[in-house]
Simulated scan of single mutants.
Amino acid sequence: MHWSSLTALALVAPSHALIRFGCSQLVVDRIDPLVNPGVAPSPHLHQIIGGNSLKPLMKPIEHDLPSLSTCTTCQPADDFSNYWTATLYFRSRNGTYKRVPQKGNAGFEGQHGGMTVYYMQNQLADYQQKAKVKAFQPGFRMLIGSPMAGTKAEADKYPQLTYTCLQDMNTRFPESKNFPVKPCPAGIMVNLRFPTCWDGVNLDSPDHISHMSYPSSGTFESQGPCPASHPVRVPQLMYEVIFETGTFNNKADWPADGSQPFVWSFGDGTGYGNHGDYVFGWKDDSLQKIMDEECYVNCKSMKTQSIAAMNSCTVPNAVNENVGDSDWIEMLPGVPHSKLKA
């Protein structure tokens, strides 16, 4: 179903909270405060959005994002969380690389790069959104997916990480676990949906995943119950990242053997290594108030800022290197050619 149709139906249906908002790019940098805290450069490049208190080292609880940030690239003015994924590259026939830029989603034209973020109580097409959820707590962080996944079986451990080949900006289906194999007229959308069951105790875990769980049966969309080990239902956090592949859609520039030319910044040419990270940073109880409100996208309790304000919030790079924004580069930042997976 197209987003315009969802919005129209929402206007005639009573609902509880689902929010969808844009976030401009904060920085593209080789840091990873969750997996490689304090390391600069980290093993591979990331695109990061959210609050400007971002640093290579952000200790849980000690680094209070709302109090340390002075601006955010996200539309909600109270959201100083940080969200990130790997970056995408196009590999030319001669083996050089250029970074694929991102663009704003439908409704967020004018946004500088970044992505779209959702917090949902029920699946996207459920306008009632009546399930009660507990908002993430200060110090909470998690990731989903694995850059080490190189097969579909490994990727299927994370069932809600997919790709959509956009025919236009309203395309949402079909989805695939691997990179699209044909040029996508409106870009490649990377979809990341995080688990929705929390153990209720740990704000993080050594692997940044095990304090979270998928439903014990069924799915989030089917209202599957949380397992006893992870009984607390939290919002489904979802990212939509749209990579603007238009410049690279000429099949004459693609590999002569007909294979697809896109590769993640950590060297994965299959797409199975799709992953994303999250560090919670909403101010006070602002997210819980939104989740408790009867609203769909346009929530009165969500204070917002302009796209111009979102675009003006940036941080300097921790690592000064050529990441292939304008020039073709010989290798992916931090990743030798021998590590490429295709």
Rank of each mutant, 00 (worst) to 15 (best):
K182I: 11
K177R: 15
M115E: 03
D325V: 09
K339S: 13
V117I: 15
P147C: 02
D277I: 02
G113V: 10
T270D: 04
L34D: 05
I31F: 09
F140Y: 15
R172S: 12
A135H: 01
Q121P: 07
F280L: 03
S92I: 01
A228D: 14
Y296A: 00
S176C: 02
P101K: 05
N274P: 00
D156T: 10
A186G: 07
N274C: 03
L332H: 07
N105G: 08
E293G: 03
L340M: 13
G22F: 01
K132E: 14
G22M: 01
N322T: 15
A77M: 09
P159C: 06
D253C: 02
Y118P: 09
C313N: 07
D277P: 07
P333C: 02
V201H: 11
F140V: 04
C184I: 06
K339F: 12
E221Q: 10
C313H: 08
K55H: 14
A86Y: 11
H44P: 01
P66D: 06
A17K: 04
L161S: 06
N122G: 11
C226D: 08
L340K: 12
Q47V: 12
T72W: 04
S326H: 12
G38W: 09
G246T: 13
F90C: 00
R193I: 00
P215Q: 03
T219E: 10
G107W: 05
S312E: 12
V232F: 00
Y89W: 05
K339P: 04
G273Y: 07
T116Y: 02
I307T: 13
D79K: 07
R233Q: 08
N317Q: 15
H208D: 11
H230D: 10
W328Y: 14
N178G: 11
Y83V: 12
S265C: 08
V323H: 08
F220G: 05
Y214S: 01
M115Y: 11
N82T: 13
D156L: 13
Y272C: 07
F194G: 02
L26A: 09
N52L: 05
S222V: 06
G51C: 01
Y239V: 09
H275I: 01
K177D: 12
D284R: 07
L340A: 05
S265N: 07
N311L: 01
A153D: 13
V323M: 12
G200P: 02
M291G: 03
A13I: 13
Q123E: 15
V35H: 11
P215H: 09
K157Q: 14
P231T: 00
N320V: 13
F108R: 06
H16T: 10
H16G: 14
Y158V: 00
S213V: 02
W254H: 01
E244N: 15
K59F: 04
A228N: 10
G273W: 01
P206M: 06
M310A: 01
G107E: 06
D204G: 10
K152Q: 13
M189E: 15
S176I: 00
M189V: 01
D268K: 02
I242N: 09
W264R: 05
L88I: 05
Y97F: 14
A17S: 14
P138H: 00
I48F: 12
V181D: 15
A40T: 08
V263F: 10
N322R: 04
Y83I: 13
L11G: 14
R141H: 11
R99I: 10
E221V: 12
A17I: 09
P159L: 04
M331V: 12
F173T: 14
R141S: 08
C197M: 04
T162H: 13
T73N: 04
T151N: 11
